Computed example of a mutant assay.
Amino acid sequence: MTVTPTGDPGLFGPGSVTWQAHADPMMWVAGIRALYLQALHPRAVRGVMQNSDFRRDAWGRLRRTADFVGTTTYGTTEAAERAGARVRKIHRMLGATDPDTGERYGVDEPALLLWVHCAEIDSYLHVLTRSGFPLTDAQADRYIAEHRISARLVGLDPDAVPADRAGLAAYFARVRPELAAGDEAREVDAFLLRPPTHPLLVPARELLWRRVAHLAYASLPRYAHELYGRPAPAPATVTRRLRVTGTLLRAIPARLRWQLPPKHVLRAMARLGPDARPAPYKPGR
């Protein structure tokens, strides 16, 4: 028996590629890759380091970012729009200073917002597909196009945002000369490899977190490895590691994974009915 959804599907809805993809556990690896990539834009990472409590509350920042993605993907339209308005308000109040020139600029410059957006979407799509999440080329293009919605939420003009893989590749080729691994990027790199934690959790950090961080870093494009100054691993080795990790994480029952707070997927299913359950095979329907 098919249950017809009666609640608000939100900005994406169960028929979107985004709805299916963002419930995958490899999104955590993809999110860390995005941080490594975003840190290579000196103006963008400077805005983060000069305005946030990243050094003292990095775990909180990561949780807030994950909550924003979960809310905008699985929340109601009102909740997603409210989350976007909150981000835009914060960005409008913040600025950064170039230590070399003394230039003061806003962190909501469209070029900076676009870099953060494209680094995220590229990382999500790259890690998911390379780890075995089933998407055709057309579905990958559809995923990128869908995220013109999330671009609008943070203050970008959707028409100025890449809408497919070709547009995303052209964007990275255009911005590549602006990228560098400055002091702030190396600070992010050092944190991601060894984030501060309670002494009792240090063994878990060394056993689990460092493996995840190393895998996320390994999946970066070759130019990113060159900028960070470390040799790029063999692509086939990285792909194999991503697939093994994806297989292991996907073996954990979804209902168990989705119990972790703040339970965005479970709340969406309660709102829309069991047919709204995300699944890797659904984008091709």
Rank of each mutant, 00 (worst) to 15 (best):
G75S: 04
Y171C: 04
K282I: 03
R86K: 12
T239D: 02
P253M: 01
R277Y: 02
G182C: 11
T4K: 15
P158R: 08
E120V: 12
T101Y: 01
F172I: 05
L94D: 15
T97I: 07
P235G: 05
L193A: 13
Y105I: 09
R82S: 10
L40E: 05
Y228A: 05
L215Y: 09
L35V: 10
A119H: 10
V265P: 03
R165S: 04
R148L: 09
P196A: 15
T18D: 03
D137A: 07
A30P: 11
L135E: 07
K263N: 03
R176W: 08
L215G: 03
D164G: 08
A218Y: 01
R63I: 00
M26T: 12
R104P: 02
A145G: 09
D122C: 02
I149V: 06
H147I: 13
G132T: 08
T71L: 01
D137E: 14
A30Y: 10
A138V: 02
I144L: 11
A251Y: 07
V188A: 02
G229N: 00
Q139I: 08
H225I: 15
A173L: 11
A279N: 11
A111S: 11
T247L: 01
Q259A: 07
L192F: 03
Q259D: 09
Y223N: 07
G60L: 11
D141H: 03
L125I: 03
A279T: 08
P235D: 05
E206R: 15
L37M: 15
D100P: 10
T73N: 10
A166I: 05
